[in-house]
Design a protein around this nucleic acid. Structure first.
Lengths: 240, 240
DNA sequence: ATCAGTTGTCTATTGATCTAGACAACTATA
DNA sequence: TATAGTTGTCTAGATCAATAGACAACTGAT
């Protein structure tokens, strides 16, 4: 259950649990939260503490309190992203979201760090292009990603991405008709810094982090990316 | 950086950040933390707050303070679990851990819920066997898992598991020579309840959750499992 | 119109968290 | 032996988190 003296405020623990319950469909029959008094008893805390948790969810736009009636559930979504050889941000979500878009936050040319160089199969210090992008579903930010491409081969990919709003299309303009996912690492951290702002998270929220390498059909690495997903909005599905 | 009024105490945010930095190898050159005064300035907080964070890490056995010297880093580990058709808890960790074991926490016979029934391809309400297990690497708890098997086919799997300490071997005793991973879902939540105790986590820590279906070589589902991994001790690697 | 049930707001109190400062205790090194 | 730099401990106060209780404001149904 919820833990006291843990360094995590009770209202935040309760807000996190309720968010999961909502996304799990636990309240789908009524589309409402139980009353504050009921929740307070269920969690073994004061009603004011529950109110703090509900206020946090209301800030996120997940619920809306109506005086005299109750607290209505406004939104419930946890997108499922399939991970396979053909993983792309904008595919495999059929029917889960009406509108998917992706925007460029920042781009830069950098010398490849050892980790990036190894992933891309180039010499450390070689120029590569960094793209910081934001993935949005139905107007709600879903993921924040940092991608690296070898600069020699993909000059101008930033502009192409900005024009098309898609990595796949941008690569297509640069002669990559098809590409496949070589590997994906998945971990989880607490959100912080720019991601909190970009993804409109409450501080302390969880991020699912994927570190992936894409290659062209010859097996040559073309993209190294690190994506941060809001953990309460997505889950991954690995078909093996 | 760290956020105030977030419902997560500063000392906990700082402890989480330092744990990640340690596991990331940021202090490998000296194997020591910077001094408390340095950390306090870096994070923009009082030295006492940093001390609370260091005390939390010391409780986890990750660092050890020595008066007059500094705070030594005792441990740094994040295991990489490969996820593929041949995923097994005790394989693919070659060299990452000296000793891997797995113990039975609890077993029970339950009627299959709709979700479990669908996953196992049986009728809802059919009897299935639930095994709660704990995975341990080098004496440190890594994952807590709940697995379901069709009771009709796998009677006695609890005893076999207890005897062998391995799902693979237990299935082998019951006539399953080989099995493959059909699918894996990955999500993340805050740790709570029994998992906090079993995995010796500080409350509020992150869990990586995998929900998986294993089948025999004929494609018949034999196991549905939900594993919770301490997110600061593991990451997943998906080769596609 | 009344009433039960809900959310909204206020006051007061307690305990946890964070800051601030001072000094003791200890270690390694010059 | 000094000394600089480190962790350990103590006190005090400020702010945040949580509890407790009371009552207002509102909604839907009787």
């Amino acid at each position: 259950m919820i833990e006291r003296r843990s360094g995590v405020a009770l209202w935040r623990q309760i807000a996190d649990r309720m968010r999961l319950a909502i996304n799990n469909g636990d309240y789908d029959d009524t589309a409402m939260m139980p009353s504050e008094a009921t929740l307070a008893e269920k969690f073994g805390v004061n009603r004011h503490t529950v109110r703090s948790a509900l206020a946090a969810l209301a800030d996120e736009g997940m619920v809306r309190a109506v005086q005299g009636v109750g607290t209505l559930i406004e939104r419930r979504d946890r997108l499922t992203f399939p991970i396979s050889r053909r993983t792309r941000f904008s595919q495999g979500l059929g029917g889960q979201a009406r509108e998917l878009q992706s925007t460029l936050i920042e781009q830069a040319i950098e010398r490849a760090s050892p980790v990036i160089a190894t992933a891309l199969g180039i010499a450390a210090g070689t120029d590569c292009i960094r793209l910081d992008t934001l993935g949005i579903a139905d107007g709600k930010p879903i993921s924040s990603a940092t991608s690296y491409f070898p600069a020699a081969r993909f000059a101008g990919i930033g502009a192409a991405y900005q024009r098309t709003g898609s990595i796949t299309k941008a690569l297509g303009e640069l002669g990559v008709d098809d590409y496949v996912r070589r590997s994906t690492e998945i971990s989880a951290i607490h959100a912080e810094g720019a991601d909190v702002r970009l993804l409109k998270l409450s501080p302390g929220a969880i991020l699912l982090v994927t570190t992936a390498i894409n290659t062209d059909t010859d097996g040559t690495p073309i993209q190294f990316s690190r994506s941060r997903f809001a953990a309460d909005r997505v889950k991954f599905f690995v078909e093996t």
